[in-house]
Nucleic acid binder design. Structure first.
Length: 784
RNA sequence: GCCUGGGUGGCGGAAUAGGUAGACGCAAGGGACUUAAAAUCCCUCGGUCAUUAUGGCUGUGCGAGUUCAAUUCUCGCCCCAGGCACCA
């Protein structure tokens, strides 16, 4: 659907649009020097891929994991299609931002709710995932423990089932609210004097769009149906209302209203003058209904609740639930917010759903041998995104796979784009496998993904769907694991300040003339307003074209800046000057190497004992080993490339700090060896970050083989061990002095040296020393 | 309202296991080189009070606490970002 919308906007065919994009993306990624294994490249819009998606759909259909039902679904008028709940953000379409309305349609669904509990339980086992994403998923699944209770309807052999998380307040339920769409609403009001009122209300509410229904200040209103139900615990007669705040899609679509203990119910009761009964009171005070201004939702002591009076309300939840179960009035249940995944899209550009509608046989799956059902590509798109498929006779008209009737029709809805992305990583393991969905051995070898990377915007879209799909594959015996991604890193977005011109609105950075004191618009010379730093977006024009950047600085500087500016999970604030700084660093490395390369060409990278080296070069040698240790750790374990880069910067600064470097290298072959070791290590450490640069540097140092074939540098712990240690002295926790001391000096000697220090003495000022804390090889704290 | 993060110089950010706060870079200021400019190299750079010193005081959103020692741990509060939200 995203590709199709873009293709329509650009007056081209989605296929052409998609393949063009893949081509330019591949080019850009290669140009930036990404080391992807291009032999495994797949395109999910090709029949070789979606054939297996359709195959999987058939398997899911067989097992009842995929089904069709008529339901109220999210419909986007602008995109002309249904959206899954996950694809509606604040009641707007995730793709085009237009409002979404509810529409009743027959649709295909995946039974993701069957795995709700499992998806939730495993959230806590995803140790390598950011907490933020876990929290969002848990929230989305929305498990709540409660009780399901039947409220008998007066003078009728029927009851209203409700779901509540607060069974302790049942005695305080004084009225009932049904969702306007609830089937009982019509049933109770039909033929009564309330019918017209109710019908008008339902009609009015259904016309209101969801976004206004979700507003904070949206007024709670309802209409009496004329019927009463009986509170099964208190025996009280409760009027049955239909109310706009009751949601058909949550729980049972009916709310047992307890105005004393639920704010929403409280407001409703006040408005319609309904009874309020307090059944839980705070431990240290009494509640008076007439003076209450809001509901009491806290924990407390039970009152007005028959045998349960005096108990703690939290305990009463359990006791009342048990009582209800014993009397067969209801039972404990678990309710989830998560609903089944609607995957039908009334759009053209997607994998066809391999199903046939036959007048005789009903819904019939396409035979496995007849897969793939190929999406015809020689079609013209219709205005406004409406799918041409249902009007393509040669596609839509089909023989029934079961009875052979020639009048059957193909399912012309296509699958949600997120179905494609829910299993591509398995396909990567054996991209050319043609007789099966994937090669089992290859999947066993590679999967699950050790480290997955993606944006947070997929926290509950792609990442939840993929976790679900993995469970489906697992249930079908196709894979042995349940979780697709062991570790997850959600990278930040690239952000930049916006520029607004009073005349031209948002303008591109290259349209800003910043030569004067005040930046002005190139086109009209008006002063420019510099807006806040926001995610780069075409609409706000705060973008940098990567190609321009590659032209000016090349791939390495671009990579270096991106990795240096912030740790990867954080948003990156784009800075032209920062890029310039990265460029400067590379030139600095190149220059020092260029100056010294002839002097060290014949030297062997030093690898001997530290006692052979002297002075600054010993220091440099140690620093190199230390840097290797830090960089290795930063890159491998922490993914903190920014600190890895800064460590190499420090190392390079250390070289620059040596006076008369050339002379010292000329005079002493050991010094030259140290220098060579340092430069080679620097090249190797920089190679993942600036691969092209590192390769050049490597060659200039006399290597004929690619740097990629050289092993990662290793450090020796014994080189790091220094005999002379800098010891910091604190008096009462404040830094007062420091001195060098031999590594293994005994505590007594350290104490003596510290106490005899002139500056330390000054701050002790003759006061008695209470305590001396010595942290080995680090500091001394003297408490006076 | 609820759930997650997060508040450190002019700015991006360091401080990995409670132990020298501000690494590294950007910007700024000063100097060297140059006829000049660019490029490059060197120095300064949290605040404040001092200018004999390896200086004093203060400082990681605010307020308390634990500790010899807190950016780091605990409690309360404020602010920012993201997510969820008539969810019964």
């Amino acid at each position: 659907m995203p590709a199709e919308n873009a293709a329509i906007a650009n007056k081209t065919h989605p296929a052409a649009w998609t393949y063009d994009n893949i081509d330019s993306m591949r080019r850009e990624l290669k140009r930036l020097g990404f080391s992807y294994d291009w032999d495994r490249e797949i395109a999910t819009c090709k029949p070789e891929y979606y054939k297996w998606e359709q195959w999987l759909f058939l398997k899911m259909y067989e097992k009842g994991m995929a089904y069709r039902k008529e339901a109220l679904v999210n419909w986007c008028d602008s995109c002309q299609t249904v959206l899954a709940n996950e694809q509606v953000e604040a009641d707007l379409c995730w793709r085009c931002g237009e409002p979404v309305r509810q529409k009743k349609l027959w649709q295909w669904f995946f039974r993701i709710t069957d795995f709700a509990e499992d998806l939730l339980v495993y959230c806590d086992k995803l140790a390598g995932w950011p907490e933020k994403v876990i929290a969002m998923q848990k929230n989305w699944i929305g498990k709540s423990l409660g009780t399901f209770i039947k409220f008998p309807i007066e003078n009728m052999d029927e009851h209203i089932p409700v779901f509540t998380t607060r069974p302790d307040t049942v005695f305080g339920a004084t009225f009932m609210c049904l969702a306007p769409e609830h089937p009982l609403v019509k049933k109770l009001s039909t033929g009564t004097s309330h019918e017209e009122n109710i019908d008008n209300f339902i009609e009015r509410i259904s016309r209101q769009d969801r976004s206004s229904r979700a507003l904070d200040n949206y007024e709670k209103e309802g209409v009496f149906t004329g019927a009463f139900c009986i509170n099964p615990l208190s025996g009280k007669k409760m009027p049955v209302y239909t109310a706009n705040f009751a949601l058909m899609e949550y729980g049972t679509g009916a709310v047992m209203s307890v105005p004393a203990h639920d704010q929403r119910d409280f407001e409703f009761a006040k408005k319609y003058d309904l009874d309020i009964i307090v059944v839980v009171k705070p431990p240290d005070e009494d509640l008076d209904v007439s003076s209450m201004t809001e509901a009491f939702t806290g924990e407390g002591v039970m009152v007005n609740s028959g045998d349960f009076d005096g108990a703690n309300s939290k305990k009463a939840i359990d006791d009342i639930s048990s009582f209800i179960e014993e009397k067969d009035l209801g039972k404990r249940t678990v309710n989830f917010r998560l609903r089944d995944w609607g995957i039908s899209r009334q759009r053209y550009w997607g994998a066809p759903i391999p199903m046939v509608h036959c007048n005789e046989c009903g819904i019939v799956p396409v035979k496995e041998n007849d897969l793939p059902v190929i999406l015809p590509e020689d079609v013209d798109l219709l205005e406004g995104g409406k799918s041409p498929l249902s009007e393509l006779d040669y596609y839509a008209r089909v023989k029934c796979p079961k009875c052979g009737s020639p009048d059957a029709r193909r399912e012309t809805d296509t699958m949600d784009t997120f179905v494609e992305s829910s299993w591509y990583f398995e396909r990567y393991c054996s991209p050319d496998c043609s007789d099966r969905i994937f090669d089992k051995d290859a999947v066993d070898y590679w999967m699950p993904v050790d480290q997955y990377i993606g944006g947070v915007e997929h926290a509950i879209l792609h990442l939840l769907y993929s976790r679900y799909y993995t469970r489906v594959l697992n249930a079908l015996g196709l894979v042995q694991y349940r979780e697709p991604f062991t570790r997850l890193l959600t990278q930040g977005m690239v952000c930049k300040e916006t520029f607004t011109c009073p005349e031209h609105g948002f303008i591109f950075p290259e349209e800003v003339n910043d030569k004067g004191a005040q930046p002005v618009c190139e086109k009209c010379d008006n002063n420019i307003i510099v807006g806040r730093v926001e995610k780069m977006s075409k609409s706000k024009k705060n973008v940098i074209d990567p190609n321009t950047l590659l032209e000016i600085y090349g791939a390495d500087t671009t990579r270096l800046f991106c990795l240096f500016a912030a740790p990867p999970e954080r948003d990156l604030e784009w800075s032209e000057q920062g890029v310039e700084g990265g460029y400067r660093f590379l030139k600095r490395v190149w220059r020092i190497s260029f100056i010294t390369v002839d002097l060290i060409m014949d030297a062997v990278p030093f690898n001997g004992g530290v006692d052979e080296i002297e002075g600054e070069f010993l220091d440099l040698y140690r620093k190199t080993h230390y840097t290797i240790k830090k960089v290795t750790n930063d890159i491998q374990d922490r993914f903190h490339f920014n600190t890895a880069i800064s460590a190499v910067m420090e190392l390079v600064n250390r070289i620059y700090a040596i006076d008369n470097l050339s002379d010292k290298l000329k005079k002493n072959i050991i010094n030259a060896g140290v220098m060579k070791f340092t430069l080679e290590s620097a090249a190797l450490m920089l190679s993942p970050i600036v691969p092209h640069f590192a390769e050049e540097l490597w060659e200039s140092l006399g290597h004929e083989e690619s740097i990629l074939l050289s092993p990662w540098p290793s450090y020796r712990e014994e080189v790091l061990v220094q005999d002379d240690i800098l010891l910091v002295v604190q008096v009462n926790g404040k830094l007062r002095s420091r001195f060098n001391i031999s590594r293994n000096t005994g505590e007594a000697a350290i104490k003596e040296t510290a106490l005899s220090d002139e500056r330390v003495q000054k701050f002790i000022g003759g006061k008695p020393v209470k305590k001396v804390i010595i942290v080995k090889n680090k500091l001394v704290n003297i408490v006076v």
